[in-house]
Write a protein that binds this DNA or RNA. Structure first.
Lengths: 195, 195
DNA sequence: ATATTTGTATGATTTGAATCATAAAATAAC
DNA sequence: GTTATTTTATGATTCAAATCATACAAATAT
């Protein structure tokens, strides 16, 4: 995320997208840097048979879809608005110039990418070697950690969304959550999950 | 990877590790930048019950284990030498100073990280929504692509290594490969896999 | 040249998550 | 306030990959 003081000097385009709008599609070539001013965005893959795999969520004041800007690769996933969104848009070339001119921003940026990388490495391990309950628990703890809140954390995802994030079926998620409650790994209150 | 002309001016320590040596361990805090001069390194996770998940392989002239240098996170995986290795070692602080002093190196570095990121995103999708055969095929194609060779590519991995990279059992890998041969997705000659 | 270890192969069985079927709660829409 | 839709819930069944058990081939060591 680029601080607004710096971003503004590069005259970004402020675009609005309504709920469910697609900002970019998988396999499309990247042309812009996107920074979310308001709203919520989901990055996801869609398969032949209509299955969804969610790579991640992005909240306001974060950028998304940057990695392919640095290579000559298409987007590895699609971005969809979960709410109405306002997005700062910067041309790829302008964005790369900005980084060159602001080494401190570039470094912060690298840090961000590295954190996401570490998260992906963690999730990959989970996906391949751990059973459903463990996978869900890791996801929930990650959400809690990145929310950085005190005390009990309310998970604001539906079972289906957890399903899309973990690659498990909804029924499996529901059963695993019940089991996790029994073993006191989380708290269930009026169907809401707390951790 | 830092060009040797630049790297040398920072007086890196050239360390040698023998086959099977551990360069760093999962959960350890990162203190150094590592760049492989010769040999081969594997990044992996080990689970409670002795299962292995391989995050990736690193050949000579590549750096590894950089992401945690940018945060205050421990290594998400361990690094082991698959052969005798020579490794350039630079202190974290020196490495970060180098990047600050050489924006072009920093940018190339970001590109590298982004490419790895895209690969991880791809693999995550595979792991979660695609069946074994597809998973193996994607891995093999990725290996071929990154080898960047002409024509038929020989996969120099054992079935067990493919197992560790895909999170599938050896027997499953063997059976899937046979099936992939039948459907002409790859070529099997004297037990060697070509693609 | 033979023994040992490592890698490949295959059949039989088990198991755990996906799938199928169906319904009740909770929310949103009208 | 009623209807429609989405989310949560649960039991029954299926199925594909893991596991188990063994054996054979190939590479390495002695």
């Amino acid at each position: 995320m680029i601080p607004s003081t710096i971003l503004e000097t590069y005259h970004p385009n402020l675009k609005t997208f309504s709920k469910d709008a697609i900002i970019f599609n998988e396999t499309e070539m990247p042309r812009y840097y996107y920074q979310l001013k308001s709203g919520k965005v989901k990055m996801f893959n869609l398969t032949e048979n209509g299955k969804v795999f969610t790579q991640g969520f992005f909240e306001k004041n974060t950028s998304f879809g940057e990695p392919p800007l640095f290579g000559s690769f298409p987007y590895p996933a699609s971005a969809m608005c979960l709410e109405d969104c306002e997005v700062y848009v910067l041309e790829k070339k302008v964005f790369l110039n900005l980084l060159k001119a602001h080494p401190d921003v570039h470094l912060k940026f690298t840090k961000l990418l590295c954190n996401r990388m570490l998260y992906k490495a963690k999730i990959m391990k989970e996906l391949s070697i751990h059973p459903p309950e463990h996978r869900i628990l890791t996801l929930l703890h990650h959400l809690k950690d990145s929310a950085n809140t005190e005390g009990l954390f309310e998970v604001k995802l539906t079972r289906q969304q957890i399903s899309d994030l973990t690659g498990l079926r909804v029924e499996t998620v529901i059963r695993a959550i019940k089991q996790l409650e029994k073993t006191k790994k989380l708290i269930l209150k009026q169907r809401k999950v707390y951790i």
